[in-house]
Each structure stands twice: as structure tokens, then as C-alpha cells.
């Protein structure tokens, strides 16, 4: 059932986004794992286009928020507004009250605005002036951000980074794909060609399938060893948190479900460890300066090479 779902999503998204099947599959994997996704890449690499077309094919409520430096938290979560007629303060829901929230260029906003999403991402609720409101279900944040060495960006706080189940890095397309993109853009791109292909019921069914996927105790021990491996590595300042380990298992279960399996294998873990852990970790500055490690993904790869999976 999930394989069919995947092929439908790839087909629909592929109508407007070229050469991003892997990224689309990762988005779907995170969605059915009930996680949030961070898309990172230089401008013009189809991050927003992919997020928009992916959301369209889900047939769920979708809101897009363009993050800017002058934003306030209430622009995201909403706030109390005085109603002149009833002479009372009423809660006006912000754009976060949706199924899919596209937080475009999230690192252009100040950290306090970025942090406004913390509660909604973790607890699926919003608290404003002591009043807690539940968010619609399912709820997924797809955020895009530019690399940190770009002008006018604020790095996301560690606690915020830790709430993204996976980070998908967008590189430049190869030449063949780029030519295809150029050809397609000779005529105006119309997102209306992307039709909703997944109903809410199908999505709920997909959640159930993922929940039924077995992760054996040996797989859990393996994931724990990997997380500890990132924490004890001298080149790392901040290793993978227990939440990171939990989310790695969850996204691995979703991957197994998409591949038609009812159990998680070490290959699922190895395939997703990079996208699920790298963005939460911080390199030690002196190690980076000494050239001992270039990025956290490379460290994770070395940890994966050393830690013996259950065989």
C-alpha cells in the first residue's frame, strides 16, 4: 500500500520538480513517521517548489510563512486581539494552525521567532497567555533555510534543530537535470497540475502501518551505540541526543514500511543516520581548525564504519 502511495507522490511531484525523487521520498518518509523536515541549500535549488508541490499532492490544509527579520512570534502562533463588538479579547489563530506549515527561509527570522515553533513541533499545541490550543492532526513543519555562511541569517537554536526529524541538503543538479529544468521553464510553471493523491484516511492508515513496524531490541541497542559514538567522539562538541535516537528509529520504521517490510534492518538505520543526526550535532571548533573533521556527516559516517551492527 505504501509503495503505491510513494509512486503516486513521486509521479505528482515529478510533474513540476525534476531530479528530486530522493528528496521527495525522504519528505514522504518523514511525513509518515510524523516528523518535521528541514530543507537546506543555496537559493534557487527548488527547495520551496518541492515543499509546495509535495504539500499540494497531500490534499491537506497548507500554509506558507515567509520568515523575515522583523517578524514577531504572534505572526506564527497567533495572539489575542480585542474584539470591538463583543468588547473582549479573542484568540486569533496564527498560520501554525494548519496540517502542513511551510516555514520558508526560517533562519531569516530572529531566534525568538524561530523558537515560537518549539512547542508546536514537539507537543503539537500552542500556548499563548496561558491558553493552550491543540493543532490540527497531522501537523508537519517543512522549513527551508540557506546555508549559515549567507548574509542576514540567524543560526537556528540547538533545541529547534533537534526537533527536525531529518535535514535534507539540496545540492546543485547535474547537467542533464539542469537542461530538463531549463526546458520545463520555457513555459510558465503551473502548480495546479499537481493533484492531491493522498487522502487523510490513507495518511492515517500509513501512520498505523509505520507504528506496526518492528524495531528489535538489537536494532535499538545498535542505534544507542551510534548515538553514544557521536557523543564520545573528540571532534564533536554536541552529539546526538536521545530524542535524535528516538527519531532515527521512527524514520527508519517509516523507511522499512515504504519498502514493504514489517521490521527495521541495520541498513535502514545506516541509510538515514546522516539525515537524521548530522544537523543536531556540533563540530568541535579546534578539531575543525586542525582539519580533523570537515562536517558532522563525515563523523557520522566514521561512527557507522566502526560500530558493529547486529548481524
Amino acid at each position: 500500500m505504501l509503495a503505491y502511495l510513494k509512486s503516486k507522490v513521486l509521479e505528482e511531484v515529478g510533474k513540476v520538480v525534476i531530479g528530486r525523487d530522493e528528496e521527495t521520498t525522504l519528505l514522504l518518509t518523514a511525513l509518515i513517521a510524523r516528523g518535521h523536515v528541514l530543507l537546506e541549500g543555496v537559493p534557487g535549488t527548488s527547495k520551496t517548489l518541492l515543499a509546495k508541490s509535495f504539500s499540494r499532492c497531500l490534499g491537506l490544509r497548507f500554509r506558507r510563512v515567509q520568515f523575515t527579520p522583523d517578524m514577531l512570534p504572534l505572526d506564527i502562533v497567533g495572539g489575542f486581539i480585542f474584539n470591538m463588538k463583543s468588547r473582549e479579547f479573542e484568540f486569533k489563530e496564527g498560520p501554525v494552525f494548519t496540517n502542513i506549515l511551510l516555514a520558508d527561509e526560517i533562519n531569516r527570522a530572529a531566534p525568538k521567532v524561530q523558537s515560537a515553533l518549539l512547542e508546536s513541533m514537539q507537543e503539537l499545541q500552542v500556548t499563548v497567555e496561558g491558553q493552550t490550543s491543540k493543532l490540527p492532526s497531522p501537523f508537519m513543519v517543512i522549513a527551508t533555510q540557506n546555508p549559515l555562511d549567507f548574509e542576514g541569517v540567524y543560526p537556528l537554536p540547538e533545541s529547534e534543530m533537534d526537533r527536525f526529524m531529518i535535514r535534507i541538503e539540496f545540492g546543485y543538479p547535474n547537467q542533464n537535470v539542469e537542461v530538463e529544468i531549463l526546458k520545463r521553464n520555457l513555459t510558465e510553471l503551473d502548480l495546479d497540475v499537481v493533484k492531491p493523491v493522498i487522502s487523510n484516511e490513507e495518511l492515517i492508515e500509513a501512520f498505523k502501518v509505520v507504528d506496526s513496524v518492528k524495531a528489535s531490541i538489537e536494532i535499538l541497542e545498535y542505534v544507542s551505540k551510534l548515538a553514544i559514538g557521536t557523543r564520545t567522539d573528540n571532534r564533536i562538541n554536541l552529539g546526538a541526543s536521545p530524542r535524535a535516537a528516538v527519531q532515527l528509529v521512527q524514520v527508519a520504521r517509516a523507511n522499512a514500511a515504504l519498502e514493504g517490510r514489517t521490521y527495521v534492518t541495520p541498513d535502514d538505520i545506516k541509510k538515514l543516520a546522516g539525515v537524521a543526526l548530522a544537523h543536531r550535532m556540533r563540530l568541535d571548533r579546534s578539531a575543525a581548525l586542525k582539519g580533523l573533521a570537515t562536517n558532522t556527516s563525515a563523523v557520522i559516517q566514521q561512527v557507522l564504519d566502526v560500530v558493529k551492527p547486529p548481524r
Binding site: 541498513d267 557507522l304 560500530v307 558493529k308
Partner: peptide
């Protein structure tokens, strides 16, 4: 049988990283 294969692999490829999986 898989234990035998594991021993055979270790002997044939002493540089094989410990983190390999059967599929790899």
C-alpha cells in the same frame, strides 16, 4: 552459515570496517 561467512570475510578482507551489513 552466516557466522562462517563472517569469519571468512574477516580473513579475506582484514581491512573491512566493522560496521558492514550483509546487504552491503
Amino acid at each position: 552459515a552466516f557466522k562462517i561467512l563472517e569469519k571468512s570475510l574477516t580473513r579475506t578482507f582484514p581491512d573491512l570496517p566493522a560496521g558492514y551489513t550483509w546487504k552491503e
